[in-house]
């Protein structure tokens, strides 16, 4: 393992950004989000979770993929792609897990070329969490705050320095390219990091357990709960906004739209949300999910029942974003607890 002293981070940013677009958690007006790093940005590696997860790096909120021109009834179509290597530095382990869940959707047959290209072009560096907060519950999904198996490089914040471990070929390559800024980590330093990791995981798991945020069994229980009264108690307070889905690292729904001036323009895909009224609204005016009740149910059923039935895993990584940001506290942790409660009640 390697390490980098924190004083050298500015040089690291410079060096990385000279070879690729460098996405870092950048603070602006009190909000920390991933953004392409520019000289003078205030990088915040302490903030636990960015408001918007780094899914917008691999799956941008708006992505033009085609240009067109209509001329005398003739149609010209050209693919449009913004290519380029990038480095994503500072994704939390839950963020990385979120990306691997997106992988399942976009990389399954037929593979989504736009997405897979972005995945190939990027190197993901994850920073371990030393202090998960009250809304975090990644351990409920068998994730570790101190470890992101899907990251190319894993980094632990040890105070004055970051311990640095390449976990993939891409990671090795990037490590090699910034070797001048790294040092070998001593045996004790590695041991200290691994101990820290174990401590944090144990503490976090205990906290989540105490809250009753245990999803085991929920995917089975929910199979019979489509018509359950439980949705009644949740949906009324929902504002029907898009916060919970837009800031969720696992939500992958998108819309496709054209823009144009005269007869020339582009086509893009952009995030969409099952919480919006027009998500399933058909041209005929019919809507299979006409009220917030069906829409709220869809969100939780998708994450906790449908996705697991297709891919074996929950579509939630316990990042706590919806717990922190839903303006009316309609979050997945409460649903897990309630549904889990249904199960133990009937046993």
């Amino acid at each position: 393992m390697k390490k980098i002293v924190k004083d050298k981070l500015p040089s690291l940013w410079e060096q990385l950004s000279s070879q690729a677009t460098l996405f870092l958690p950048v603070e602006q007006d009190g909000v920390v989000n991933f953004a392409p790093w520019e000289e003078g940005d205030s990088v915040n590696l302490e903030a636990l979770n960015t408001v918007v997860p780094p899914k917008n790096v691999v799956f941008p909120q708006t992505e033009t993929y085609m240009r067109f021109k209509v001329e005398n009834d003739k149609l010209h179509i050209e693919p449009f792609e913004q290519n380029g290597p990038y480095v994503l530095f500072g994704a939390r382990p839950c963020d990385v897990a979120g990306i691997t869940l997106l992988d399942k959707v976009f990389l399954q047959e037929p593979e989504d070329g736009l997405y897979s290209r972005r995945r190939r072009e990027g190197t993901v560096i994850s920073v371990a969490c030393n202090e998960p907060d009250a809304a975090c519950f990644c351990t409920s999904f068998e994730l570790e705050p101190g470890m992101a198996p899907g990251a190319d490089i894993m980094v632990w914040d040890m105070g004055d320095y970051l311990l640095w471990k390449a976990q993939s070929e891409k990671g090795e390559k990037l490590t090699g390219s910034v070797e001048n800024l790294l040092q070998e980590a001593a045996e004790e330093e590695q041991k200290a990091a691994m101990e820290l990791k174990e401590r944090v995981t144990a503490k976090e798991a205990a906290a989540a357990q105490e809250m009753g945020w245990d999803p085991s069994g929920v995917k089975e229980t929910l199979k019979d709960m489509f018509d359950s009264d439980i949705w009644e108690q949740f949906f009324r307070r929902c504002l029907g906004c898009g916060i919970c889905t837009y800031i969720c690292p696992t939500c992958h729904c998108f819309d496709i739209q054209d823009y144009s001036k005269d007869q020339e323009g582009g086509r893009f895909r952009c995030w969409d949300s099952c919480m919006f009224a027009d998500f399933t609204l058909m041209g005929s005016g019919e809507n299979p999910r006409p009220t917030r009740k069906e829409r709220v149910r869809q969100r939780f059923m998708h994450k906790l029942c449908y996705y697991p039935s297709n891919f074996g895993l929950y579509a939630c990584v316990g990042c706590g974003r919806c717990v922190r940001k839903c303006p009316v506290n309609l979050d997945i942790a409460q649903v897990i607890k309630e549904v889990g409660g249904v199960k133990s009640g009937s046993e």
Binding site: P110, C253, R269, D272, T280, C305, Y306
Partner: peptide, 17 residues
């Protein structure tokens, strides 16, 4: 149903799983 991608990715046309 309303559809956008046609390939099971845009998440719009599901009936259950």
């Amino acid at each position: 149903l309303k559809m956008k991608c046609g390939v099971g990715k845009c998440g719009r046309c599901n009936l259950g799983d």
